[in-house]
Write a protein that binds this DNA or RNA. Structure first.
Lengths: 227, 227
DNA sequence: CGATCGTTTGATCCGCATCAAGATAGGTGG
DNA sequence: CCACCTATCTTGATGCGGATCAAACGATCG
């Protein structure tokens, strides 16, 4: 049974809500919590897929290095987030992405095989995993569309609103949960471009100064929210 | 039990390989094959999700209309392809995309609820659905990356190679399976842009004249294949 | 044979990447 | 406490790629 103090984030993960502590124990069987210093890799592109991951503390960045040096952040995971869902359901056992800690991070590493076996019994959890996979697919689909049809400024606006909603932050004013360079990488744009958009955001009813963001809702661009 | 002649494409769909005809009958229970004239809608963005679809004959285009008139083709489905997989696994019952026939198309429409119940029994099929969902997620993820880091010409090159591979066409020479405007829409670019890239493709070892494509493999850009 | 649709080609414009300096902040050591 | 350093962010100047507008071309069809 896993050691450690930062255990709550996992047991309280939305993935497990409604389960008894005992059931969670079964599902988390064989899991180990590891510490990762900033830039420390959890796995690399091309590695075999052997574990399912759940973040306890800190932030983990999942990214792809394409042919040239260019690097795109595919996803950003905070406490309670689980990842490698798609990989778990695919047969071919190679990671398509790399994952590394952004700051000091504690992450649980859960062997896939026993987990998959247990999921047969805990249908609720399986359904939630599939559901989040479907949502991920939608999210990426929308991103493709956004990149094709929206300007960088509009993309940033949509992203900020989405961050605000998903992190349950106060729309009236909140601090950016990630560094700007991480955000830029996540949005597939250069840091310079992101920086420039931050001023133009005023047209969309968003003010950014330093790391502080506030919405003073211009009613017009509601579409950006849903994304 | 469904009428019709074009039934084979469904029963031979990779989704069902390995099942007995009787098992397929159970899974296809309640399914109806409908004919759709070109541009005819199967469903529209905002409609409730009630059916799972399998193409018998023809081509179906799944697309999104964003805020303004801009339209992006999310996916193109040919005979044997099934879709609305993600929608089926999501709770919120609204279509995020519209689907319409490209040419004359016959499509089977399968009520979701009974299908989901049956899937409990046919785990193999369920797994395949999840698997294709995971693959779709990957595909879209790669597309996001490509749009951010590659030029239109490179994207087209990658798309053509992927088409060739997935349709099992002869790399030495084949005809485009879709119209150029459909391809452009699928790749999130304008028709004019696609048209211009077709000449530049020679640098990547691809010759296009009219609807005829041939690879004379320049060994260098193998990366584009996998995508 | 003209009409319509899909595709090509040309000209122009705008947005983002890129390169190159500055600015700001956090951290360290003297 | 201040000088220094490095990492992160900002700002400016320039170039390229793709969207857009416009027109010509080609095919299919009534």
């Amino acid at each position: 049974m896993p050691q450690t103090e930062h255990f709550d984030a996992i047991r309280n993960s939305p993935l497990f809500t409604g389960l008894t502590e005992g059931e969670k124990d079964v599902l988390l069987e064989g899991g180990e919590i590891h510490f990762h210093a900033p830039q420390g890799y959890l796995f690399r592109q091309g590695d075999g897929v052997e574990y399912f991951y759940i973040v306890c503390k800190g932030i983990v960045r999942e990214f792809r290095k394409s042919h040239r040096g260019s690097e795109i952040t595919v996803n950003i995971h905070g406490p309670g987030n689980a990842f490698c869902t798609a990989e778990m359901f695919l047969k071919e056992g190679l990671h398509q992405t790399s994952a590394a800690a952004v700051d000091d991070a504690h992450v649980m590493k859960l062997p896939i095989q026993p987990l998959k076996k247990n999921l047969q019994k805990y249908k609720v959890v399986l359904e939630r995993l599939i559901c989040s996979l479907a949502q991920f697919a939608f999210m990426k689909q929308v991103e493709v569309e956004q990149q094709a049809t929206m300007t960088a400024t509009q993309i940033v606006a949509a992203f900020l609103r989405q961050i605000c909603a998903s992190h349950e932050l106060d729309p009236g004013g909140f601090e950016l949960p990630y560094s700007k360079s991480l955000i830029a990488s996540r949005l597939g744009m250069e840091g310079e471009t992101l920086s420039r958009t931050l001023h133009k955001l005023r047209q969309y009813g968003i003010t950014v100064r330093g790391n502080h963001v506030s919405f003073h809702d211009a009613p017009d661009i509601k579409e950006n929210v849903r994304a």
